[in-house]
Design a protein around this nucleic acid. Structure first.
Lengths: 248, 248
DNA sequence: CCGAGCTCTTGATCTGGGTCAATGCCGAGG
DNA sequence: CCTCGGCATTGACCCAGATCAAGAGCTCGG
């Protein structure tokens, strides 16, 4: 997590599609770039593609730390990234788990206001900040897209504040599971991926690992969810799960 | 708070500067409109002024409720507004206190994702949604300003998540007082206004009134702050207050 | 000037979730 | 195959802050 520990070489960058594993990944990434900016018309998209660098980030590697100069913006195309803030004494709050299509580094600031680290192996598109900003000037549609994303993020952040400030441990875990299922478009038939550790879940929900574990076990025991393995679950009883989440 | 209780007449609107108390208020509001959009050049500002309606909102009156159709955007020019979300059973989380110059209703959604209510008597500028959006199209500078504000709000929201998820009661109250002092540019010499009730503070910090009261008394007793009266305080010992806030 | 109804403070007690401490369960490496 | 080390679960106990219960100030209408 800390950049200090272990020689963390910079994330590998592929500048152009090539043969071999990295090449394949880059091709895949190119196809998905469009998810960043569905609102964009052809020429703007081409320009965006032109300044895109592809990045592969192995699980556990950090993308940037809070306070680093904000030289790039990113979109996630594959895998999962967690975004978090820390207190000096090590307490951590994860403010979000990003899924493919999500934007990262949306900041008008000189330095990042939070840290980002890969939960699973991840693929990203990286946009150099100055070039991206220049592109913004020429393409209002892109700016509009960003504003719309910022609004959604803000709404999600407010929902999370409600969770952290006012919900019980049971409600938090239920809300979390429900939210994951919705975002992944999975649920009662298709299993929902739960790739992050119990520690990460705890730091996202403002709880301890033990409490998270207990609540997940309780949900399983009461038949609200089923777990084929520790990192996947099925929503057996959506009604009761929603009720437990105290949806506002 | 609930629109149901008591016949809440719609907020009074002055469409043009006039003589009398409302007129004076509107004049004042006009002068301050510029705070919304310092980035704007002359013509854009004129256009913005042209679609502006002035609103006076007495303390305790609600501006809109979560779920209401989002027909307007606002800027606060005078007073204080609180923004909050509620759970069906009445639990409440205040997600922000707005000060003059702050923007409200920044949403790309059909309906408001939260409720807003005046803490003190307030003056606002109201912009009809469709007209404002049309203006956005023509003036990228305005859009840029909004994006920048959204970024700041997002950063503030993440900071608040850290507070709600990981800080102790003492740290929450200290962070809150410090944040207020900074935003108001007041502190050890000029008293900081604390216009909201202890209930509001509790609902902002994810605590109970009793805990908030106890922590404020403790801060007073330890000589970190002084309180000329219940709704103003002085930062006597900024060093210790910052330490108590566990700044990250 | 009074008093009703608030908000705020303070004290006493209770409890949800944190802390501490094993124990179980993998997956990776030998 | 075993064994090691990191997650995850489970149990026992504890404590920060919630809850319950009085008082103590304000404030505003009359």
């Amino acid at each position: 997590m800390r950049r200090a520990e272990g020689a963390v070489e910079p994330a590998e960058q592929g500048t152009a599609p090539r043969v071999g594993p990295c090449g394949v990944l880059c091709e895949d990434c190119r196809v998905r770039t469009i998810s960043v900016c569905r609102a964009l018309a052809g020429p703007a998209l081409d320009e965006l593609e032109a300044i895109t660098l592809r990045i592969r980030l192995p699980a556990g590697r950090n993308l940037f730390d809070e306070g680093d100069p904000a030289e790039s913006l990113f979109t996630l195309t594959e895998g999962m990234i967690k975004v978090f803030k820390m207190l000096p004494d090590g307490r951590r709050q994860i403010t979000g788990f990003l899924l493919p299509g999500d934007f990262l580094g949306l900041a008008f600031f000189r330095s990042y206001a939070y840290s980002a680290e890969a939960v699973t192996d991840a693929l990203l598109c990286r946009f150099p900040r100055d070039r991206f900003m220049a592109l913004l000037e020429r393409h209002p549609a892109l700016e509009k897209e960003l504003l719309s994303r910022a609004s959604s993020e803000l709404a999600a952040a407010q929902e999370q504040m409600l969770l952290l400030g006012r919900k019980s441990a049971r409600e938090r875990v239920a809300s979390f599971l429900l939210g994951l299922a919705r975002r992944q478009g999975a649920g009662s038939t298709k299993p929902v991926a739960l790739p992050m550790s119990r520690w990460d879940i705890a730091d996202y929900l403002g709880l301890t690992v033990e409490t998270v574990s207990r609540e997940i076990q309780a949900a399983k025991a009461s038949g609200v969810i089923a777990m084929p393995d520790r990192h996947h679950f099925l929503v057996v009883d959506p009604r009761r799960l929603a009720a437990a989440a105290a949806l506002g």
